[in-house]
Simulated scan of single mutants.
Amino acid sequence: MALTIGGLGRATGTKIETIRYYERIGLLPKPVRTNGNYRDYSAAELGRLSFIRRARDLGFSIDQVRALLTLSDERRQDCATVDALARTHLGEVERKIADLEALRSELSALIASCTGGTVACCRIIEALAPHAIFEG
């Protein structure tokens, strides 16, 4: 199976610039080139890029993806390191969710405080600019 960069992009839902970026930073190996100097990707690169995409979709950072790729290349290694990396990432996701829930609560309270009227008396604007920068 041989794919051009466009074919690889379509097969994985990845933009061509992103594929080139992954090559530059070493997540994807430099592909072989055809006689016409086109990139020529195999099933191995398709699988690797699919792995990268899925990990990124799950919110893993580039460094975490790099670590996961390194670990996945060592098939006989104990998966405790992979588990620890995933658990650390889950903790980060849970912290972000808690931050977003607090943000939602704060925004909901601001919206609920709105009593209508003019912007000059707007509780939301007042909360955003507590030092009355709009007075004048």
Rank of each mutant, 00 (worst) to 15 (best):
Asp63Lys: 10
Arg56Met: 07
Ile97Asp: 02
Leu27Val: 06
Ser105Lys: 12
Phe60Lys: 08
Asn37Pro: 00
Leu69Lys: 00
Ile111Lys: 11
Arg95Lys: 10
Arg39Phe: 02
His131Gly: 09
Val119Asp: 07
Arg56Gly: 01
Asp57Ala: 08
Asp40Arg: 06
Ala98Phe: 06
Ser61Cys: 00
Tyr22Asp: 06
Ala129Ser: 10
Thr70Glu: 15
Ala129Ile: 11
Glu126Asp: 12
Cys114Leu: 13
Ser72Phe: 10
Ala2Val: 03
Gly117Phe: 09
Arg48Gly: 06
Leu3Met: 09
Asp57Gly: 01
Ile52Lys: 08
Lys96Phe: 00
Lys96Pro: 00
Asp73Val: 05
Arg53His: 06
Glu135Phe: 03
Thr81Pro: 01
Pro31Arg: 03
Arg10Trp: 00
Ile16Lys: 12
Arg54Met: 11
Tyr41Pro: 00
Ser42Leu: 07
Tyr22Glu: 05
Cys79Lys: 10
Ile97Glu: 00
Tyr21Ser: 09
Ala120Asp: 03
Glu45Cys: 07
Leu100Asn: 11
Cys79Pro: 09
Arg48Cys: 07
Glu92Leu: 14
Ile5Thr: 12
Ala127Phe: 04
Thr12Cys: 15
Tyr41Cys: 04
Gln64Asp: 09
Leu100Thr: 09
Leu107Tyr: 06
Ala67Ile: 07
Arg10Leu: 14
Arg33Asp: 08
Thr14Lys: 01
Cys121Ala: 14
Arg56Cys: 06
Arg95Gln: 14
Gly117Lys: 10
Asn35Glu: 15
Arg33Glu: 07
Leu28Asp: 04
Leu103Trp: 13
Asp78Arg: 05
Ile52Arg: 09
Cys122Lys: 11
Arg104His: 14
Ala2Glu: 14
Glu74Asp: 14
Ala84Cys: 08
Thr12His: 05
Asp78His: 08
Asp63Ser: 15
Thr115Arg: 15
Lys30Arg: 04
Lys15Asn: 12
Ala129Leu: 12
Cys114Trp: 13
Glu106Pro: 00
Val32Cys: 06
Thr118Pro: 07
Asn37Trp: 01
Ile111Glu: 08
Leu58Arg: 08
Thr70Pro: 06
Val119Cys: 02
Arg123Cys: 11
Asp63Thr: 12
Phe134Pro: 08
Leu71Gln: 13
